[in-house]
Every structure is written in structure tokens, then in C-alpha cells.
């Protein structure tokens, strides 16, 4: 299937899954996992930076429309997309991906993937929860939210990547 079509489908499915399923799961007041980030994580390595930013913004804004918080997810996801190339360099070290086009759990080392996902999810959640409270008044609560949500998000995203890794190889 065409790569662009796959990405469009992935975009729509992740938005729907996030707003119709994940947003309704309540794990105490502090745990808010966000799995739509998988979309940004799986974009091709060679994608120009400006495209990453635009897609990050679009993804965040789509979630915002459903949660009624314009600008909140858009801001956090744009920041995450902006940091992605730097984080890839940081976690890879001397590793090179000459023959790999997209980050893919089947072809890349699991530990590499975990570090990559963790760093970007952390940046996103950090920005998101601070923007959400819009002040430093509730700093303890915000930090607790970040601390509890990041592991759950990372876990769910790794699960999604694991479940869909085999389908990727068949393509």
C-alpha cells in the first residue's frame, strides 16, 4: 500500500482510538495516557523537519477539537515533533539507519526504541500538563501527573508498536 495512505489511515485510527477509547479510561485522577503520539514516532526518518512540525501541529489540533482545548495538544505535539530529530541523534549515538526508512520495532533494537519513545513522550507530557494548568500554581499536581502518566503512555505505545510490528514486515 502507498506510504501516504498508510499514514493517513494511521492518523485517523489513532485520533479515534484516543478520543473514543483511551480518553474514557480512568486510572485515578492523575494518569492520562496519550497514544496518538505513535503517529509522530513512526514518521519516516527522512521526512523534512518542516513537515514533521506541520504534522505534529495537525495531529495535536485534531485531538484538541475533540477535547475542547484548542492549542493545548497542538502546542505540546509541535514541540515533540521539533525535538524528534535531535532525540533520534541523541539516543542513536553512532548507530546508522542506511536501509531503514521508518522507525520500526521489527528492524530496530528494542532498547533503542524504548529510549526513543520515553524521551519524546516525556517532552510531550511535560509541555502538555504545564500548558494545561496554565500556571505554576499547581506545580506539585502537575509533576505528579507527568510522573504517573509517562510510564503508562510509554507502555501503551510500546504495546501498539509490538502488536503492529509484524504487519509491517509483510508489506
Amino acid at each position: 500500500m502507498n506510504r501516504t495512505v498508510v499514514q493517513i489511515i494511521r492518523f485517523v485510527v489513532l485520533v479515534l482510538f484516543q478520543v473514543l477509547v483511551i480518553n474514557h479510561i480512568r486510572l485515578g485522577g492523575y494518569v492520562h495516557p496519550y497514544i496518538y503520539l505513535t503517529f509522530i514516532l513512526l514518521l519516516p526518518f527522512s521526512m523534512p523537519k518542516w513537515q514533521l512540525l506541520v504534522l505534529g501541529f495537525a495531529m495535536g489540533l485534531s485531538i484538541d477539537l475533540f477535547t475542547g482545548t484548542p492549542g493545548l495538544h497542538a502546542g505540546a505535539t509541535t514541540l515533540m515533533a521539533f525535538c524528534r530529530p535531535g532525540i533520534i541523534k541523541l539516543v542513536s549515538g553512532s548507530l546508522k539507519f542506511d536501509n531503514i526508512q521508518e522507525p520500526n520495532l521489527g528492524q530496530l533494537d528494542g532498547m533503542w526504541f524504548l529510549r526513543y519513545v520515553f524521551c519524546l513522550v516525556f517532552i510531550h507530557h511535560f509541555a502538555l500538563f504545564f500548558l494545561e494548568s496554565f500556571s505554576f500554581r499547581l506545580i506539585g499536581q502537575v509533576l505528579l501527573r507527568i510522573l504517573l502518566s509517562v510510564p503508562v503512555s510509554v507502555f501503551l505505545i510500546m504495546m501498539i508498536l509490538y502488536i503492529f510490528k509484524r504487519d509491517k514486515k509483510k508489506e
Binding site: 501541529f57 477539537l65 484548542p70 492549542g71 493545548l72 497542538a74
Partner: peptide
Amino acid sequence: LFILLEVISILLLARSQNFHRNWMV
């Protein structure tokens, strides 16, 4: 582009802080 998109986000968010939210919603 990054700064532009972030400024748009913050503006949208700041405007949504009052009860009556904006045209987009």
C-alpha cells in the same frame, strides 16, 4: 515555523481560557 506554530497554539489556548470558547470549537 516552529515558533510560529507554538505562538498560534498559545494564542488559541489563551483565548480558550474564558468560558465562551472560540470560533474553532
